[in-house]
Simulated scan of single mutants.
Amino acid sequence: MNGPILIVEDDEDDQFIFNKIFSELQIADKIKYFTNPAKALAFLREDPCQPFLIICDINLPVMNGLEFKTAIDRDPILRAKSIPFVFLSTSTARKMVDKAYKELTIQGYFQKSDDYEDLKHRLCSILDYWQHCQHPNSP
C-alpha cells in the first residue's frame, strides 16, 4: 500500500470505529478522514499524492457519495489517477446500488455492519483485495 486510504464519512462514531479497526490492522497512519465530499474533492485536486483507495459513505453533507464519485469521474485528471473506489454505507436501496454500478466507475458497494467483527472483516477483505489486485496504481 503506497498512498493513503481516503475515508469519506461524516458520522463521528463510524470514524472512531474505523480508526480502531485500522489501528488493529496497523495501518492507521495511512488513513485520511473527510467529513464531506467537497473537502475530499479539494484534497484530491490539490494534493499530488496517489491515494491507494477511497471508501465512501452514500449519505453525506454538501454532496452525496454518488455526486462525489460523479465529480471524480468527470474530472480528467482525477479519472486518470484510477483510484479504486468503494461505497460502504447503511444505504443499500436497490436504486442506489443500481445507479452506483450502472452510471459510475465504482469497484464495490458494501453494507455497513453494526457488528464490530463483521465490519472489521469487511474492511480487511476490501484492503486485502486491493493490496493483491493488479490495477494501474499497483507497484
Rank of each mutant, 00 (worst) to 15 (best):
Y129T: 14
L119F: 02
N2F: 15
N137V: 08
T92V: 14
A71Y: 01
F22L: 12
L88P: 00
D11G: 01
H132D: 08
R45Y: 07
Y129N: 09
I31Q: 02
K32Q: 13
F110V: 04
Q134V: 13
R122W: 06
K95A: 11
Q26Y: 11
F85N: 06
C133F: 09
S125Q: 12
F34D: 07
F52S: 05
S113G: 05
A42R: 14
K112V: 00
L119V: 03
T90W: 00
G3K: 01
L104T: 11
Y109Q: 01
A80K: 15
D57P: 00
F87C: 00
I106M: 01
I27R: 12
N137C: 10
Q134M: 05
I31T: 04
I27G: 04
L66H: 09
I54P: 02
A93Y: 08
Q50G: 06
R94A: 14
P139A: 04
F34T: 08
F18I: 11
I126T: 08
Y116D: 15
E9Q: 05
S138M: 03
E117H: 14
N137D: 12
Y33E: 03
I83C: 06
N59F: 07
S89T: 15
W130H: 08
L6V: 00
N64Y: 05
I54M: 08
W130A: 08
Y129M: 09
V8E: 04
F52M: 12
A42L: 10
D11N: 15
C56G: 04
Y129E: 10
P61W: 10
N36V: 07
S82L: 06
V86T: 01
P84H: 09
Q15W: 04
I21N: 01
Q107V: 04
T35K: 15
I31P: 06
P139Q: 01
T90A: 15
D114F: 11
M96H: 13
A38H: 02
L78P: 11
Q15H: 03
H132N: 15
D47E: 13
